[in-house]
Amino acid sequence: MRPWAEIAGGLGRGFFTLIGGLGRMGRFTQATLRSMLIEPWRGRTLRWGAAFEQMVLIGVASLPIVVTISFIVGLIIAMQSAYQLQRFGAVIFVADLVAVSVTRELAPLMTAILVAGRSGSAIAAEIGSMKVAEELDALNAMALHPIRFLVVPRTLAMMIVLPCLTVIADLLGIFGGLVLGVVSLDISWIAYFNQTADALLLKDFVSGLIKSFFFAVIIALVGAFEGFHVAGGAEGVGKATTTAVVRSIFLIILADMVFTALFYSTF
C-alpha cells in the first residue's frame, strides 16, 4: 500500500512542480516582453548600450565555434548526400541538398545549440551569481527592475546576434559542401555555385532566419530564468547553468519541430 501511495504522491508533486514552473516561466516571459515591447512606448528607454556590449560578448564568444562547426556540418551533409546520389549518377544535386538542408534546418539549429551552450549558460551563471550575492535585491532596492536592467538587453542582443551568426553558418555550411564537391566529387566550383544559386530560394533562407530569431528568445529567456531562480550558493549556480543548457536545447528542438511543420505546410 505504502509504496503506491508514495509513487502517486511523487507523481502528483512532480505534476504540480511542473505546472508551477511553467507558470513562473510564463510570467517571466510576459514581464520581459512587457519591458521590451510596451515600456519603450511609455517613455522608458531601452538600454541599447548594455545590449550592444552583450552583442559583442555573445558574438565574439561564439563566432569561432560556429564557423568551424558549420563548415564541418556542410562537409558531412555533402558526403552523406553524395553517398546516396552517386547511385543515381546525380552527384551535382549534392549542391541542392546541402544548400536547402543547411539554410532551412542545420545552420539555425546548430548555431542555436552552440550558442545555448556557450552564451545561454553564461547568462544563467552571471545572473545566478548576482542573485546569490544579493545583487538582484540591490537592484530592486534601488528601484531598478532587474528584468528591464539585465534580461531585456541580453534578449535584444541575442535576437540580433543569433540570426547574424546563422547567416554566417549558412555561408560556411554551403562552403563546406562546395569544398567537398570540388575536392572529391569532381564538380567544378562554378558548376557547384550555379547549382546552389538555382536550388536556393529566398524562402529557405528566410525561414531559417525566422527560426533563429525565436531560438534566440528561448536561449536568453531560459538562461535568465534559471539564473533568477538559483537557490543556495555556488552549487546552485552550477546547477542552474546545466539546467539552462538542457532546457533551452529541449525547447529549441521543440520549437524547431513546430516551425518546420508550419513552414512545410504553408510555403
Partner: peptide, 14 residues
C-alpha cells in the same frame, strides 16, 4: 528612489 539601503553583505555589483 528616496531610500538608500546598505545590505549586510554589501551587495556591490561585482
Amino acid at each position: 528612489r528616496k531610500v538608500g539601503m546598505l545590505f549586510q553583505g554589501a551587495a556591490l555589483f561585482n
